[in-house]
């Protein structure tokens, strides 16, 4: 069992990077009640991957991994910009816009991959292949995640204020739309890269479930981040360790462990009587 885990250790490191980065951003996603923005951005990212593969099949676009990442990044960041400035709110409720984006992007991802020359083989991109992560991939993920996490540490109080009480923040001179935009762009950036390796299910899980665990367990705001990071790291490690020897799909195994940790946190919260 230990040898099997060692064999895929690079994949575990990659999963840990994705999990920890998403766990930090996920605290904002859950607290701001924009859980489905995370889902919609993940689907936009998959549509970007599909578009890159389809264009590559037609000979109109490069077929390397860098090309798919590039296209996915452009589409996801465009979505983050759209949601960040409150796009579509003039005519529709925000949730309706998110719902339309989510469903259409999901369908486009599937349709584009189906029509790509090597479509079947590339279904893997949409579902994610966490075990396929290499050392190089982990370094790419670190190159994205570390600056994002440093930025979040530097502007933590600003993100807190504009998330918690944007109206008051604005009266003190905060440009709330710009701060929101920055927050959404960091979320979009991490999702676009994470999607290349982890797929929609796992990325969405890391964006939501560890943060929920953190909110259930922690008694302070900053403690939520700590608990969320620990829950993501624990879920990634345990899910990984049990999936390899038991020949289970790794992504769903990690999600299942995340869910169990959230359940345990809920039971702890109940036991505390809070």
């Amino acid at each position: 069992m230990f040898e099997a885990v060692l064999l895929f250790r690079e994949a575990l490191y990659g999963a840990l990077v994705i999990g920890i980065a998403c766990a930090v951003l996920g605290v904002y996603v859950v607290l701001r009640r924009i859980v489905f923005v995370g889902a919609a951005l993940a689907q936009l990212s998959s549509a970007g991957i599909g578009l890159a593969l389809w264009l590559a099949g037609l000979g109109l676009f490069g077929s390397t991994h860098a090309h798919t990442i590039g296209m996915s990044l452009v589409i996801t960041l465009a979505g983050a910009l759209f949601f960040g400035v409150g796009g579509g709110r003039r005519y529709l409720h925000h949730e309706a816009t998110i719902g339309v984006t989510y469903s259409v992007a999901a369908a486009m991802g599937i349709l584009l991959v189906a029509k790509a020359v090597t479509g079947e083989a590339h279904d893997l991109f949409l579902q994610g292949n966490i075990l396929g992560i290499t050392r190089g991939d982990t370094l790419v993920l670190l190159a994205v995640a570390v600056p994002v996490l440093i930025l979040h540490a530097v502007v933590a109080k600003e993100f807190l204020f504009v998330s918690f009480d944007p109206e008051t923040a604005q009266t003190l001179g905060y440009r709330v739309v710009r701060w929101n935009l920055l927050l959404y762009l960091t979320i979009g950036l991490v999702i676009a890269f994470a999607m290349q390796f982890a797929g929609v299910l796992l990325v969405f899980n890391f964006l939501v479930v560890p943060a929920v665990t953190g909110l259930l367990l922690a008694r302070t705001y900053w403690g939520v981040f700590g608990c969320s990071i620990c829950a993501a790291a624990l879920a990634a490690t345990i899910g990984f360790v049990i999936s390899v020897p038991l020949d289970l799909p790794t992504g769903p195994a990690i999600v299942a462990v995340s869910g169990l940790l959230a359940l345990a946190a809920w039971l702890v919260r109940r036991a505390r009587g809070e």
């Binding site: 607290l31 918690f164 009480d165 109206e167 909110l215 922690a218 008694r219 302070t220 705001y221 403690g223 939520v224």
Partner: peptide, 8 residues
């Protein structure tokens, strides 16, 4: 308008 979900 103040959100009680935040553990502040």
């Amino acid at each position: 308008h103040v959100d009680s979900l935040y553990p502040l």
